[in-house]
C-alpha cells in the first residue's frame, strides 16, 4: 500500500536558517559522493568500447548466469517468503519477535560468513553435499550453489518488506470478506494480495537487486559458473580495472531499473 506523502513542514521553523544551511552543505557533500563516482564510471570508457565488450562471451555468460540465478532465487524467496511474511504480520508475541530476528539475521550477517554457514550444510564434504554430488546435482560450483547463496542473502528482503505491506492491510477487511462467506484463500487472493501488492512487489524488486549483486556468499559456494559480480572481480584481478567496467555498468543499469520499479508500480518502502 502506498503510504501517501507527508508534507514536511519548513525546516526553518525548528532549525533556524543557519542550521538548515549547514545541513544542506553536509547533505550536498554526501550526495556528490554518490553521484560523482557513478558519472565517472560512465565517462571512464568510451561508449563504443563498452558496447563492443558487452558481446564478449565471458560478459554474456556471466549476465546470463546472474539473470537466471537471481530470477530463480527471487521466485524461491517469494514462494517461501510471502507465507512467512503474512504470518509475521498477523501474529504478535515473543515467538514472532524471535522468528523476525532469525529472518533479519542474513541481512546483518557478513555475506562471506553466510557462505561459510551454507558450506557447512551444502559443502562437498557435508553429507547433503556428498549425496547431491553422487546424484549428479552438485550444490557448490553450480547454478544451484549460486541460487543457494543468493536466496540466503536476498530472501529476507521479501519477508521484511511484504510483512510491512501485509500489516498495512486492515485486518477488518479480511474479516469482512470472510463474513461474506469467502474462504481464507479467496480472501487472500481478492483482498489481501491486491492491497498489499505494491509493497510485495517492492520486496521482490529489492530481493532481485540484492540477489543479482550478491558476491561474498556466492564466492564461497560457487566461483563457477561466474555471476556478474564474480566476473567483475576476476576481470579486475586478472586484466585490470578497465576490463571490469562493462559488467559494472550493466549492474548499475539493473540497479537503476530496480529503482525505477520501486518508484512507479511498487511502493518504495523507504519513502
Amino acid at each position: 500500500m502506498a503510504t501517501g506523502s507527508h508534507s514536511n513542514r519548513s525546516g526553518t521553523d525548528t532549525f533556524g536558517f543557519d542550521w538548515l544551511s549547514v545541513a544542506l552543505v553536509l547533505g550536498g557533500v554526501l550526495l556528490l559522493y554518490y553521484v560523482v563516482p557513478m558519472v565517472s564510471l560512465f565517462l571512464s570508457v568510451p561508449a563504443g568500447e563498452i558496447l563492443a565488450q558487452m558481446i564478449n562471451p565471458t560478459v554474456v555468460d556471466s549476465a546470463t548466469t546472474s539473470l537466471l540465478s537471481a530470477s530463480i532465487s527471487t521466485v524461491i524467496a517469494t514462494l517461501f517468503g510471502l507465507p512467512l511474511a503474512y504470518w509475521l504480520a498477523r501474529t504478535n508475541g515473543a515467538v514472532t519477535k524471535i522468528v523476525l530476528a532469525v529472518v533479519v539475521l542474513p541481512l546483518v550477517l557478513p555475506p562471506t560468513v553466510g557462505g561459510i554457514v551454507l558450506l557447512t550444510v551444502f559443502g562437498p564434504s557435508s553429507p547433503l553435499g556428498e549425496a547431491a554430488i553422487a546424484a549428479g546435482f552438485p550444490l557448490t560450483r553450480s547454478l544451484a550453489g549460486v541460487v543457494l547463496a543468493q536466496t540466503f542473502v536476498a530472501s529476507p528482503f521479501v519477508v521484511v518488506t511484504a510483512k510491512a505491506a501485509f500489516e498495512g492491510v486492515d485486518q477488518t477487511l479480511e474479516y469482512a470478506s470472510r463474513s461474506l462467506g469467502k474462504s481464507r484463500w479467496t480472501t487472500a487472493r481478492n483482498v489481501t494480495l491486491p492491497l498489499a501488492g505494491p509493497g510485495i512487489l517492492a520486496g521482490i524488486t529489492l530481493a532481485f537487486a540484492r540477489a543479482i549483486g550478491e558476491f561474498g556468499a556466492t564466492m564461497m559456494l560457487a566461483y563457477y559458473p561466474r555471476t556478474m559480480p564474480v566476473q567483475i572481480w576476476v576481470a579486475f584481478i586478472e586484466l585490470g580495472l578497465d576490463n571490469a567496467y562493462p559488467v559494472a555498468i550493466l549492474l548499475v543499469l539493473i540497479a537503476a531499473a530496480a529503482l525505477l520499479i520501486l518508484n512507479t508500480v511498487a511502493s518504495n518502502p523507504w519513502e
Partner: peptide, 20 residues
C-alpha cells in the same frame, strides 16, 4: 465454525469496504 461458514452478516463501523 469458521467465519465464512456462519451465515452471519456484519456491517462494520466504517463500512470496511474493499478500497480497490
Amino acid at each position: 465454525l469458521p467465519l465464512q461458514d456462519r451465515h452471519v452478516g456484519m456491517v462494520f463501523q466504517e463500512g470496511a469496504l474493499f478500497p480497490h
